[in-house]
Amino acid sequence: MKKGRNYKNLCLFMLLLSILFSNTMYAQTEDSKNLNLWSSVEIEYKLNDKWSFELSQQLRLKEDISLVDEYFTELQTEYSVNKNFSLAGGLRFIRQNDTDGNIQGYENHLRFQFDAKYKHKINDFKLDYRLRYQNKNDLSVSSDEGDYANQHIRLKAGIEYNIKNWKLDPQFSAEIYNHFEKGEAGGFDKYRLTFGTDYDMKEYGKIGLYYRIERDLNVDLPETTNIIGLTYKYTFK
């Protein structure tokens, strides 16, 4: 009985992966330069039941995974108010590759964010929600030169289904961005849809794979970006 259930779970997972990559290949034929690859390595330290700290290094490739988009280092900390609710903050130093316009090359950006998170369970489902304030600024251009902080309010909701005797539980999340910046019209400007899974290797850490669709909102020519993500995370106490 257990073997038959595992076989069905494997077939379902392979079907979802086939749909995922079929959609990616279709998107490539529609726009050959909208496929990105995001990769990250993260180290988490849990100080106690309340506090945790995380350091990550990430690399993002664009234009059919042929060109560096950006790479960055991020430091985050999280405080658990109780088993369901937590507060977090993070700081990110970014090297962003500008390939548009007359002046091109790598730029230095600094971003910080503050999060409020809530999670709970309903039977075999894990649900989580995140409200984020995000502030990103180009360090090479001052406000006197016309540069102002790019700010967003982001709302994300996610769900994970726990399949018994199966280590690759499916995960799905949806996120919407609300943009505001001095001198520009604000409003919703982007959304993300993400499907993925991860595998816990116990003392060796956790690896993950996801597929993400990112699409512009409220513009004349909205752009859709397809993203394949690879993650590795190691937690120690």
Rank of each mutant, 00 (worst) to 15 (best):
N6I: 11
L12R: 14
F13V: 11
M14V: 10
L20I: 14
F21G: 04
S22R: 01
N23A: 09
M25D: 07
Q28G: 07
L35Y: 05
S40W: 12
I43A: 13
N48G: 05
N48Q: 02
L55I: 07
L59I: 09
R60Q: 09
L61Y: 06
E63A: 13
I65Y: 08
S66H: 05
E74M: 03
V81K: 08
K83C: 06
L87G: 05
L91Q: 11
L91H: 04
F93H: 10
F93G: 05
I94E: 12
R95P: 11
G101D: 00
I103A: 14
Y106P: 01
E107T: 07
N108Q: 07
N108P: 03
R111E: 12
F114N: 13
F114T: 15
Y118Q: 10
H120R: 04
F125S: 02
F125G: 02
K126M: 07
K126I: 09
Y129N: 14
N135C: 09
N137K: 08
V141N: 08
D144T: 14
Y148G: 02
A157C: 07
G158Q: 01
Y161H: 11
I163D: 04
P170E: 09
Q171H: 12
Y177C: 03
G183H: 01
A185G: 12
A185F: 02
A185E: 11
G186I: 05
L193S: 00
E203W: 08
L209P: 05
Y210W: 13
E214G: 02
E214Y: 07
N218I: 02
N218C: 04
P222E: 01
E223Y: 08
T224E: 06
T224I: 03
T225I: 15
G229I: 00
L230P: 01
L230R: 02
F236T: 04
